[in-house]
Design a protein around this nucleic acid. Structure first.
Ligand SMILES: [Zn+2]
Ligand SMILES: [Zn+2]
Ligand SMILES: [Zn+2]
Ligand SMILES: [Zn+2]
Lengths: 170, 170
DNA sequence: TGTAAAGCGTTACTTTATAACATGTCAATT
DNA sequence: AATTGACATGTTATAAAGTAACGCTTTACA
């Protein structure tokens, strides 16, 4: 039984509820920290919450600008960086892009599954992955401070209909 | 007992031997594939093998140019992309940089440990991490085609001497 | 030896990201 | 209410990373 507040990005779900829940949790998390969810920041988060995709900073900027906010890169980068620091947005390094966190306020060490068919990005529960990584690091006496785990492939919906990956594509 | 042909990047070792071994394995791997290790490609690999660090494409380019090769970005990117396809170079997305593979020709699913003190990059054996990631993906019916696993932190040598990570640094 | 593919060099350009500074907002203190 | 200082926003300008496209040269091979 899927939790309606934590649906899987790849599966059909009531996304309005999904996004609303995430926004509410985000607001609560920020209030706890005593930091401000200013209009630009809120709008930035809303934009990312519109879909389970990752948007480039310049895509976000375009949206912000068309909403009457500043139209220069730092406007977007500042909001995105802030949200990332607060754990409300994750950076997908493989895509040079940002995606809204689907578990704001919760402690979680996500792995990201990036569908090259529909470009959806799912945040997979990855406690076991994190533990294995921690173990591998310990074997080398390395202290992990941050990590990013990303996988590229095909979501269930695209697996049947999308052609195999070609060298150099994606 | 450490294998002298596969030393850990963080630990002191005979790096001339380490790099020589990697180059020899790389040559063998390319021969097997029937592809060519041209002068630019060979020099690119040599440059990356000089240290256990990741170099940006433009750093590599600078070196290539000073060796008399072309001095425009595609020269470096082509060599780096080729070597990456052949599994002789890994891309470190967190750093927008490239590092030589220390296990060329071997099947391996590495995790990268990036020291923010000395900027060394170690390729940690991560079969368990890969399996855990695969399991997490299967739970969501996602098919992984490629993945990248990177951790930022401190190597044993830097752990004592380097100050804790500050927000916004690195 | 001719021919096709692969490799290299170059020009020009796009995309992504930051530095630095001026202006504006807000809330606590006097 | 005025002062102040921290935080936030907007702007200019520039840096850093990555790619498209074209023509020449080299190589493999029939
Ligand atoms: Zn949703
Ligand atoms: Zn998909
Ligand atoms: Zn070495
Ligand atoms: Zn170190």
């Amino acid at each position: 039984m899927p939790d309606p507040d934590h649906p899987v990005a790849f599966a059909p779900h009531d996304h309005t509820r999904c996004a609303g829940h995430a926004m509410a949790r985000a607001e609560a998390a920020l209030a706890l920290q005593g930091v401000r969810l200013t209009p630009v920041r809120r709008r930035t988060l809303q934009i990312l919450l519109e879909s389970h995709r990752a948007l480039g900073a310049y895509d976000v900027l375009e949206r912000l600008a068309s909403d009457g906010y500043g139209n220069q890169p730092p406007v977007a980068y500042r909001a995105l960086d802030f949200l990332e620091e607060q754990g409300l947005v994750h950076r997908i390094r493989r895509l040079n892009a940002f995606t809204a966190c689907m578990h704001p306020g919760e402690v979680h060490a996500p792995a990201f599954l990036i569908c090259r068919g529909c470009h959806a990005v799912a945040e997979a529960p990855a406690a076991a992955v994190g533990q294995a990584l921690e173990a591998a690091a310990q074997a080398l006496h390395f202290t992990i401070e941050r990590s990013n785990i990303e996988a590229l492939g095909l979501c269930p919906a695209c697996a049947g209909t999308t052609e195999p990956m070609v060298r150099g594509l994606v």
